[in-house]
Design a protein around this nucleic acid. Structure first.
Lengths: 340, 340
DNA sequence: GCTGGCACTCGGTCCGTGCGAGTGCCAGCC
DNA sequence: GGCTGGCACTCGCACGGACCGAGTGCCAGC
């Protein structure tokens, strides 16, 4: 029906105007700024219907309308096309990310880039350990009984862990231990590492069994521990700019970002297909994020998702632009990591 | 002179009251809440003098007085004693920091602890590389021509760096390279590493010279690059709580904290003696920090300072308490790192 | 089904008033 | 000489009323 169609145009116009002006938008302004071909009065009727359906709301009588979470949802799903990045923007992405010297550097640059492109808080997850494979395991003796286990994954991630042994360890044993661990775990997905432990312990020379068990345990523990999936956060200064959009205080949001766990959960719920995920306001199912939207996407090499990245901002954000930025950055990071 | 003495008491009382109430403090309130032994009128005279000397100021006529940066400075220097942590607090420090599994973990806990104790933004610097010694250097071959150099310092810090070689490297050469590098740099202070490079390159077997030079260069570069002195920041949510103290916006401050360089400079200007450094407002010599104070101290093992840690907050802060917390945490972290 | 007109609502702003906290000054007292 | 009580004065702030304008809902007419 033509009616429905126009009503959606009205909703789109409302979202666009509200996002750019931050003022509740009225029927007259809409008629002026968009070529809807009808008079303000007609728009008013449409708006009344949209409000009844829950897509928009008025902060108070005699104010314009504002999109609800549901309204943004419809906008994202049906009324907007992800707009590609401009040429200079694409160039900026390349320039910004090239020249990174290691994983830490890549992710640091990524988060800064994303924050700069979107003017929002950016979040990047380290490549998930469980989906990474072991490239190398290194054992370094710190003191007689204290060993440092260093794990290097195929994604360039380097993790360390101190292991305290009950007794002093001989130098030669350290070397043996290293080659034992490497031949057992080398090349294996970390997700499968747990299963290999019993076998490894059984086949190890008797005098090394205790050691092997301890080190394997540390390895498994390192990746099982949920906190070990690290997160890089950047661009929190952008929150100050959008402070007006967060009624009470920025505090809960800042706390959630520091907490990491909350955000991590959101960011890591991505698939490998490169679909951009948008969670709007209440959809986030976490109180502190009720007034915020999260745009996230998985990055990876080929069809393998390594981790997620995305942005957090007010529900009143430029969804098409931000979705494009997030997607573009994820693609580029994926490429970059595939090279290494 | 007894006069001067009382005037200082008045200043101290003003600082204390203002810090706890956030209201400009008037002569009457002072007389009531503190046993100064004189009437409000007398206090008014003292306040007039203090104002003339620049220690306090009034936001507007007919308001109470507020300490100036200069006033806080005098307070910190002469009017306050660092008050020791309470027993439960000391206990919390121990409980919080024990059980850390590696350096990353230790510093992460430290920053959270400090933020929690002081209710301010906490900042912890990674142990400076230039003052650390090489415990072990590891070389891992990622692809034929791409090597990963992993540096493990005696402070438990692990740094990585990808080195691109012009030609493919043979497996055996990697092992040789590793032992060459370790025997050359092992145990050496990183600050001295630069000087050893020429010698090392000269004595290396001819076919490895190019490689050795490249790796040494990467090593030196890693620690010369100023950005490599990392910083952990936490408790930014506390900024939201103290937002009232930052007139304009939190933005500049958040930006400075993300910038890291600025804060790093402040935090790293510490000595090994355990002196707590306080920089108040304008003393920070950086615009974004003009309304903020920084309390910092060096942490280290024995008489060797490894790095700095501290807090950033509004000038209106509990200096004695925060100085105590910063000092106590630094001591404990120093001990913890000395053990490893 | 669209449109112009109209009455109505209500938040934001401006202004005037009153109040109270706090000050500076002064004369008097110890 | 220094402290004190008293007093006039200054302002910021909170309160309340008036006004204005944006925006709405509804209705009759095309």
């Amino acid at each position: 029906m033509a009616h429905d169609e126009r009503r959606l145009q009205v909703l789109r116009a409302i979202v666009q105007d509200y996002v750019s002006t931050n003022d509740p938008v009225g029927s007259k302004a809409l008629a002026e700024r968009h070529d809807l071909g009808v008079s303000p009065a007609t728009i008013r009727n449409d708006m009344a219907v949209l409000e009844e359906q829950g897509y928009i709301t008025q902060p108070h009588t005699s104010a314009g309308r504002v999109p609800t979470d549901k309204g943004y949802r419809l906008f994202v799903d049906r009324l907007s096309a992800v707009k590609p990045l401009s040429a200079p923007e694409r160039k900026a992405v390349e320039r910004f990310l090239d020249g990174a010297v290691d994983l830490h550097d890549v992710l640091g640059r990524t988060v800064r880039l994303l924050a700069q492109l979107t003017h929002q808080v950016a979040v990047v997850q380290y490549p998930t350990l469980s989906r990474s494979a072991v490239r190398h395991l290194e054992v370094v003796q710190l003191t007689g009984s204290r060993l440092l286990l260093v794990l290097i994954t195929d994604t360039g991630r380097v993790e360390q862990r101190i292991v305290e042994c009950p007794v002093d360890v001989a130098r030669d044993d350290v070397a043996d231990l290293r080659s034992l661990l490497n031949s057992a775990f080398g090349g294996a997905r970390l997700g499968d590492a747990g299963g290999k432990v019993p076998d490894l312990v059984d086949t190890a020379p008797p005098h090394l069994r205790g050691l092997v068990a301890a080190m394997s345990a540390a390895l498994v523990e390192t990746l099982v521990e949920p906190g070990e999936d690290r997160l890089v956060v950047g661009g929190t200064a952008n929150l100050a700019r959008t402070a007006v959009d967060f009624p009470g205080s920025l505090r809960p949001l800042l706390e959630a970002l520091e907490e990491q766990v909350v955000v991590l959960k959101l960011i890591s719920e991505v698939d490998a297909g490169g679909t951009v995920l948008v969670r709007i306001g209440e959809e986030n199912a976490h109180e502190a994020l009720a007034g915020a939207s999260v745009v996230s996407v998985g990055y990876g090499t080929g069809d393998r998702a390594l981790g997620g990245l995305g942005i957090v901002g007010p529900t009143r954000m430029d969804y098409p632009g931000n979705m494009a930025a997030v997607r573009a950055v994820a693609r580029y990071v994926g490429q970059l990591l595939a090279e290494s």
